[in-house]
Design a protein around this nucleic acid. Sequence first.
DNA 1: ATATAGATCTCGTCA
DNA 2: TGACGAGGTCTATAT
Lengths: 246, 246
Amino acid sequence: MESIAAKIKEALKRNETIVIAGECEVNYSGRVEAELPIGERLLLIKADKAFLVHQPEGHQPINYMRSESKHQINVEEGNIVIRSQNLANKDFMKVIIKKVHFYQSKKLEDGQKIRVVGTEKDMSEMIYKNPELISKDFKPLSMEEHTKYGFIDVFGHDKEGNIVIIECKRFRADLSAVTQLRRYVEKIATAKGIGLEKVRGIIAAPKITANAKQMLEDWGYSFVAVNPPASYEKYDKNQKTLGNWE
Amino acid sequence: MESIAAKIKEALKRNETIVIAGECEVNYSGRVEAELPIGERLLLIKADKAFLVHQPEGHQPINYMRSESKHQINVEEGNIVIRSQNLANKDFMKVIIKKVHFYQSKKLEDGQKIRVVGTEKDMSEMIYKNPELISKDFKPLSMEEHTKYGFIDVFGHDKEGNIVIIECKRFRADLSAVTQLRRYVEKIATAKGIGLEKVRGIIAAPKITANAKQMLEDWGYSFVAVNPPASYEKYDKNQKTLGNWE
DNA sequence: ATATAGATCTCGTCA
DNA sequence: TGACGAGGTCTATAT
């Protein structure tokens, strides 16, 4: 344990990425109080001093400290004890490691950014460039702008001179999408000093829940079925089937 | 590469937790299309077949496949290629590993659940048991119930016979908290066939944003400052300072 | 720093 | 399975 503790300290100083598999218990205090009894987990400390505790199942870390935390390594009663604190966030974590299955660390370099296509913003852009997806008489004026009226996805008008506000959802629109749209419509009407009947609110999404549709129509808004951008499908979904899928 | 690929296959069959540090590029296709050029990362495959790609910085995995995915390991042109698919979610990922810094795998056992104190539910409970935190004449009737009126945090009435609806936020209440409250108030008023003036809407939170407060008051609702439960502070925040914080 | 909203959100829970 | 809301949400962006 002493030698592993020493390695962890060295690796922290060098901003290496650290991986430890072992038995541990975890206590956290900060935005909540949390305790996790002993079990076998994977511990990961990143170059930015984020500290993740992963159980063998589940997508998310079960405990963590965010970036820019500080860590203190000690050996106490034969266990490695990692105390972490983030004074800015006022949170604290203690991990008592009672058994180590393996330890590894390595300085990793990665300046790459991910490129993503098919987000809600892409959907707004598609509608802005193809207004006929909404209706024949829709004329977009601005898109995804943080205007003084708010964070409206697509903003425009129709032939009758009504203002049109579109809220896009990439998947299924729900109640909160409707209240979001309603908030924008009311804000615009107030800001421009015009009646609510001169502002059309539209939700553009592939689907909408029944309750959301009801509320939408109760408030005089409407739903237009729009699929998110098909994206460039450069990735082969007909994956090779040599070998076995495990 | 061949031997590491063989180890990965074996570890997958045994539901081990797998860790690989190395250089890779990643492509994902599913809910969006994403590509991540080559860089040094940590790859983690869990017992439930979730597959996380972590960059050396940042809390979240930069790419991932969710639980119950299937993985196929091949060696192609000297690289390890992991193809993953999740037919239920219709998503696909390909990771091309061009260099391996280290590989480890281990069967991990952990049936423990985390215990958390200080959530929004705890805050609702505190208000339910201590209604004077809201006002002298507030009488709670139900708490955190999925009533037919919706998921209202605390529900009750006052001496004047008004219905009182409380929406709790653990941190700072924002615009969406106000629209959420408004939705509940309107739903109750409609369901009971009473006027909006007979339903009081209250946001209970430690703080509220200026815009949210404005909207709240515009709609005739009110804000009551309530701190989330102090929780049991069993964890020593005056952490030992032996050794160095890194 | 705060405010706002998206996310391949994830996760739990209930009808 | 869908719907709904919380989350120690995290992350990006604008003010």
